[in-house]
Design a protein around this nucleic acid. Structure first.
Lengths: 168, 168
DNA sequence: CTATATTGTCTTCCATGGAAGCTAATGTGC
DNA sequence: GCACATTAGCTTCCATGGAAGACAATATAG
């Protein structure tokens, strides 16, 4: 009987008329995401990075040479506001992992580029991160892992491409 | 091709020697947790509650009559520090949803109790919340939903009761 | 009973991110 | 070309939570 099952049992006692079975899936999914996140942050912190900073470095690295992106692009890729991105870039710049310069064409734009230490750091950190994710995934059998991937993909896609229900 | 698949494709181009298949599961799980969380917060906000405040009211409500709990218990149940709990209780008290009084026995302790408006609010909000979770879960077939529940339970349990690997 | 440790809550300070608005640069309609 | 709208990034202010320590009450060792 895990934490979520205990919560469900309490609700069933207090509110027997309410069906709490959805918690069995949604509650566990959130708890698992939190636990996995904790494990992942352990690796980021080995490199002196927060999760947000790691994400930004990855987004620049994935762009390919010359490892540059505009702050706005980075905000979209990492799903934070541009205000939050300004602060992340501030920290990374202070740490010497990225540089910020004016765009040549459009003078409003900036270009954030990995420095050599930044590139080396993220290349090593990402390899370590993937080993860590592999370790966590290997707690499941390969069959279960691929079944899970399919289910998550299905659900995610049905959330992101919602069917507007017909009114008839 | 979803967002996670695009990220994987970029990494495969940039770092072909690294196996990024774990992202297919872990990345999607996090994204799904975020998307579900957004949907759930829509309901909380209908009742003027943040997620943290909703969690606290639920934890007190689940305790059963007389709907009271110590701040420390609430902190454990909702998995935040006691400092964070103090602030959540401050807000709920200011909103008139809970009261805070000194424990009779141990004078260090406090007792947080639902007010009548607090009880009515959380009873209605929780019912609405469960309808919302049901709606989201129904994007999956019942077969898929129970398969997913099993996989999440299995993985979660293997994370929370880790096997210490034998060194031989 | 007193000295010390522990406990429960709260306070302070800091980190992080969102919302909204500011500024400078660019685009657009006339 | 000028007024106006839009865009990119940044700034300000606020909300939230963690870490660490303060403080008061209680438990414990002697």
């Amino acid at each position: 009987m895990d934490h979520v099952a205990r919560i469900q049992a309490e609700w069933r006692r207090e509110r027997p008329e309410i069906d709490v079975t959805p918690q069995g899936v949604i509650g566990r999914l959130h708890r698992l995401a939190d636990r996995l996140g904790e494990e992942l942050r352990l690796v980021y912190s080995r490199y002196g990075l927060s999760e947000g900073e790691f994400d930004v470095l990855c987004a620049i690295r994935r762009a390919g040479e010359p490892y540059e992106r505009a702050p706005g692009e980075l905000a979209v890729h990492t799903m934070v506001t541009t205000g939050a991105m300004t602060k992340r870039i501030d920290r990374l710049e202070r740490a010497g992992l990225v540089t910020r310069r004016r765009s040549t064409g459009d003078q409003r734009g900036r270009i954030v580029a990995l420095t050599t230490p930044g590139l080396e750091l993220i290349d090593q950190a990402f390899a370590d991160h993937m080993r860590n994710e592999r370790r966590l995934l290997d707690l499941l059998t390969p069959t279960d892992a691929s079944a899970l991937e399919r289910l998550l993909t299905t659900w995610l896609s049905s959330m992101e491409h919602p069917h507007t229900p017909d009114s008839g």
